[in-house]
Design a protein around this nucleic acid. Structure first.
Lengths: 139, 139
DNA sequence: TATTGTTATACTCTATAACTATA
DNA sequence: TATAGTTATAGAGTATAACAATA
């Protein structure tokens, strides 16, 4: 039983991504988070005052799909909205949100470390650059 | 506006994967295929007689989700089912299926080539090994 | 007992179109 | 005229549970 797809970078990229994401979400599930929530908390933690639209652009999530994501995390008491002008609100973390951000960061760091350990040491320095090039966009 | 996620391999993996998949599906859309159909045709082309369950295991698709995938491609006249025993059927490509497989292969090869071109030449030999390691599974 | 194919169903993610209010 | 936030909705993709027939 041969797999003619296993030599295709695009295919490997997708399989590696879905496997890694499933593992990350399982780990984050233990603190009742998913990867989208965690990314949002980390992004806002590093950029207090960022608007919903800006955050969506950075995270690759459309405006419309940001609404339930923000609402869920605001509803959990983790986000604070502050009016910037008549149409945008700057987002920042509440103390509880900052505590969750820290927990999420711990889970993610552990996950990223284990992900890197799968790669032989001599290739590890190339992982981030290669993934950045494959992503392409502004990177 | 800083992106604290851009240095995380897991995050880069997911962003690179979704960007690449969107581009591949756009290209495959021009021949009215998606990546799942294309992978299936290529897998069966290389392994005539493979069963639905086996194909699902290799492709990482669950039995239940193979049903509409096989049905769609059989309905388009591309797949042939031949009874193996009372419960399984070996899958193979019809002449039309083989023609589509060839077209799909052409689109994918073009896509994979362009994907690789984003990576500086000296790093290219590391792309497939690194993605294989990140995938982990049996690879 | 385990496996194959199948149905039904639910849940998440993503995409589009439209609306309002503000700039 | 463009942008921010919002609503509603549709389409993928994926997951689980159950069943009949067969090994």
């Amino acid at each position: 039983m041969s797999d003619p797809l296993a030599s295709l970078p695009g295919y490997l990229l997708r399989r590696a991504s879905t496997a890694a994401l499933a593992e990350l979400n399982q780990r984050l599930g233990e603190i009742e988070l998913n990867h989208a929530d965690a990314s949002l908390l980390i992004l806002i933690g590093h950029n207090p005052g960022v608007t919903q639209s800006e955050a969506g652009r950075v995270l690759g999530i459309q405006r419309a799909n940001m609404v339930p994501l923000i609402a869920r995390n605001e509803g959990r008491g983790w986000l604070i909205r502050q009016q910037v002008d008549g149409r945008s609100q700057g987002l920042s973390l509440s103390p509880d949100g900052e505590a969750m951000r820290r927990k999420a960061r711990g889970v993610i760091d552990g996950f990223e470390e284990r992900l890197m350990e799968r790669v032989p040491q001599e290739l590890r320095p190339h992982v981030i650059p290669i993934l950045g090039y494959l992503w392409g966009e502004q990177n």
